[in-house]
């Protein structure tokens, strides 16, 4: 369990590499950082700098090879598949490519974010929660549309709704505003920031979008696999 005052995420001396032997390429070098509960953190840096690798390591989507990552009070290194799955159910992921299920409507895609907690939930309450978040994100008129009938920005907002509908403790987002116009992008990031204030949700965003930088509580720059002081 996470103790009071413990950061949402804590990395200590994390190294990560791809391949082995002569083809081994190190992607992360001796990364140490803490991300406080309720904060909005932006990871930035040039393409190939290792920020996405860092995001997937923190989100328990990759195995920790060296060093320590504590996520919501649990050590990820050596964690079992089952405990990693249980942890991921407490997180929200927003992917740049949306990754919506093409045969599910906006409502059904969003509902998947709630059904991950198992069957037996109150279907009416789940449906109401789904409709509410889709309306908040400006998709009230597109609830029963399939992704193929939605624009890129609308798809991105469904992906955001899916990540947020279950009130995750941490949100990991990869370029969440890339498909959105300035106002919509700012609306989404302000919403994430408000979640931090009201529910203590931490948010980690990988982005090149300079329009949202000013909303960050903290900006971490990654270059050549190293976290730069700043």
């Amino acid at each position: 369990m996470m103790s009071r005052g413990e950061p949402s995420i804590r990395l200590e001396s994390v190294n990560h590499w791809f391949g082995a032997g002569e083809t081994r390429i190190q992607a992360i070098f001796d990364a140490s950082l803490s991300i406080e509960r309720g904060s909005l953190t932006i990871l930035r840096g040039p393409s190939g700098s290792g920020k996405t690798t860092l995001l997937t390591l923190m989100g328990s989507l990759r195995k920790v090879q060296e060093g320590s990552i504590r996520l919501l009070g649990q050590e990820l290194r050596g964690a079992s598949q089952r405990s990693q799955e249980a942890l991921r159910r407490r997180l929200g992921f927003i992917f740049q490519a949306h990754n919506l299920h093409e045969s599910l409507t906006a409502r059904q895609n969003t509902l998947m974010g709630l059904q991950v907690h198992g069957p037996g939930g109150d279907a009416a309450r789940q449906n109401a929660a789904v409709i509410h978040i889709l309306e908040v994100l400006g998709l009230g008129a597109r609830i029963d549309y399939l992704p193929e009938k939605l624009s890129g920005g609308q798809k991105q907002r469904v992906a955001i709704a899916r990540a947020l509908v279950s009130n995750p403790e941490i949100v990991f987002a990869d370029e969440p505003t890339a498909a959105l116009d300035k106002d919509a992008g700012l609306h989404v990031v302000r919403m994430l920031k408000a979640l931090g204030r009201t529910r203590g949700t931490s948010t980690v965003i990988v982005t090149h979008d300079t329009r949202i930088i000013e909303l960050a509580d903290r900006i971490i720059t990654v270059e050549d696999g190293r976290l730069l002081p700043g």
Binding site: A86, R88, R89, L91, F93, F95, A97, N99
Partner: peptide
């Protein structure tokens, strides 16, 4: 549907 399945895995579906 490999990407969709991977997404479900990322979301914590077993």
């Amino acid at each position: 549907h490999m990407k969709e399945y991977a997404t479900f895995k990322a979301m914590g579906y077993p």
